[in-house]
């Protein structure tokens, strides 16, 4: 995984795991890798890996069962909520980026609608 240089690494790994849950690459209730394995997988320091799970647990994205490991939440609502949160972030980024190049939110929405029609035309 390539890391963005200005955001803390643990946040980026958290994002990656959330994405996996939202896209169902990680199923609800599935066992997550151990801290060490997570560290190896993402080539990060185990302390950072530890933090990732701690923060995810704080956000109720995962939970730890003593002696058994860390598991993805089984709460479907939480997963939906995560999807909504991610969507929100992406929208924020999009609108921010558009504003930066001088396109208003309204214009941006129209552009999106038009683009989406083009895509549907292509498919059909």
């Amino acid at each position: 995984m390539e890391y963005n240089s200005s955001i803390p690494i643990y946040l980026q790994v958290m994002m990656s795991i959330k994405r996996d849950i939202v896209t169902e690459r990680l199923k609800l209730g599935e066992k997550l890798p151990s801290v060490r394995d997570l560290a190896l997988q993402y080539t990060i320091n185990p302390n950072t890996a530890n933090r990732v799970y701690k923060e995810l647990e704080n956000e109720k994205v995962c939970f730890t069962r003593r002696g058994m490991g860390t598991f993805v939440t089984e709460d479907e609502d939480r997963a939906m909520q995560m999807k909504a949160e991610m969507a929100q972030e992406l929208i924020d980024e999009f609108l921010k980026g558009m504003k930066y190049i001088g396109i208003s939110a309204e214009e941006a929405i129209n552009l999106v609608k038009r683009q989406s029609k083009e895509e549907t035309k292509k498919i059909s």
Binding site: S6, I7, P8, T48, R51
Partner: peptide, 9 residues
Amino acid sequence: EQMREEKGK
């Protein structure tokens, strides 16, 4: 990580 969080660097 502290450097990234506090200074964004």
